[in-house]
């Protein structure tokens, strides 16, 4: 093929990806960036400035909400990892053939229902007139109905539940490629179960752990419905602040600034996490 023709083919093949990135990711972010840098100086009068960003750091409610969101998201990511690891290990190493397919399908099944409906399901279970409260009362374990909703525990529960699949799939993928003989060699040379897990299985699964953790952290930080519905007024999730600025207060520049800050700060958290665990995003992506 001649060179111009080859370039055209390459261009056409890459076009959908570029359109996707350009129209759906880059363009809105440029728009939001510009918007976030316009300060309201008088009604309907805007000027260039960093005031919206300063607002975040000077008003404690905002940065505390962000710190709380990031903190809970890290906790959710760790809990999801701890819960997903044995499940992924079982799916990848123990289950065979049909059972493996069925187990993966079972993990996937809840995602056929919209996130809103799943969260409403949790509300039915956890609320004061819900299933758990009813059972506790009926068995005489409590004297009156108990409210399980609208606290951090409920929010964490809902977020972990929502993140599990996104942790299990990359983990199972990474664990599947571990050669059984390598694990056997770990035992054969005198390793205990714990040694084999710590020195062979976990290092091998590291790309999967990093990928899964990034996905779950990003999904959790940016989640809106779960903290709002399960946390209620106590939810205090950063996305709620963005929503409030855009929709309730009609202060789009302020909302845009918060949006940019969420992107920057959560990216910084991921970068810090990678640095602290000695991982490299490049090698992770290459191995995943």
């Amino acid at each position: 093929m001649k060179k111009p023709a080859r370039n055209l083919t390459l261009f056409l093949l890459l076009a959908p990806a570029f359109l996707w990135l350009g129209l759906l990711i880059v363009l809105p972010h440029v728009e939001i960036l510009i918007l976030s840098l316009s300060e309201r100086v008088a009604p309907r009068v805007y000027a260039f400035g960093f005031g919206n960003y300063l607002e975040f750091f000077t008003e404690p409610l905002y940065w505390r909400t962000f710190a709380r969101t990031a903190g809970i998201s890290i906790l959710v990511t760790v809990l999801t990892l701890v819960l997903a690891f044995p499940i992924a290990l079982y799916i990848a190493r123990v289950a065979q053939g049909r059972l493996k397919a069925i187990l993966l399908l079972l993990c996937l099944l809840p995602f056929w229902v919209s996130e809103l409906v799943r969260t409403l399901g949790w509300m039915m279970i956890l609320r004061e007139t819900g299933v758990i409260s009813y059972v506790l009362l009926a068995t005489g374990l409590t004297e009156q109905r108990v409210e399980f909703l609208y606290n951090d525990g409920a929010v964490i529960l809902g977020l972990v539940y929502g993140g599990l699949l996104f942790m299990i799939v990359p983990l199972a993928n990474a664990l599947e490629s571990l050669e059984p003989a390598v694990v056997e060699a770990g035992y054969d040379l005198g390793g205990s179960r714990w040694t084999v897990l710590r020195r062979i299985v976990i290092p091998h699964a590291m790309p999967g752990i990093v990928a899964g953790s990034i996905i779950v952290f990003m999904l959790t930080v940016g989640n809106f419905a779960t903290p709002v519905l399960l946390g209620g007024k106590n939810g205090l999730w950063f996305t709620e602040q963005i929503y409030a600025q855009f929709i309730t207060r009609f202060n789009w520049p302020q909302g845009a600034a918060f949006g940019m800050l969420l992107l920057l700060l959560s990216s910084a958290t991921v970068w810090l996490g990678l640095r602290l665990t000695g991982q490299n995003l490049g090698t992770t992506l290459r191995q995943a």
Partner: peptide, 30 residues
């Protein structure tokens, strides 16, 4: 892991996540 027997596997099953020295030292540290 308690038998005085060690095996060289068909695929060798070296630990790719460790260096050559760590591979050899693995059994000793265990």
């Amino acid at each position: 892991n308690r038998r005085p027997v060690n095996m060289v596997f068909q695929s060798l099953a070296l630990f790719p996540m460790m260096s050559v020295g760590e591979n050899v030292a693995y059994g000793l540290t265990c």
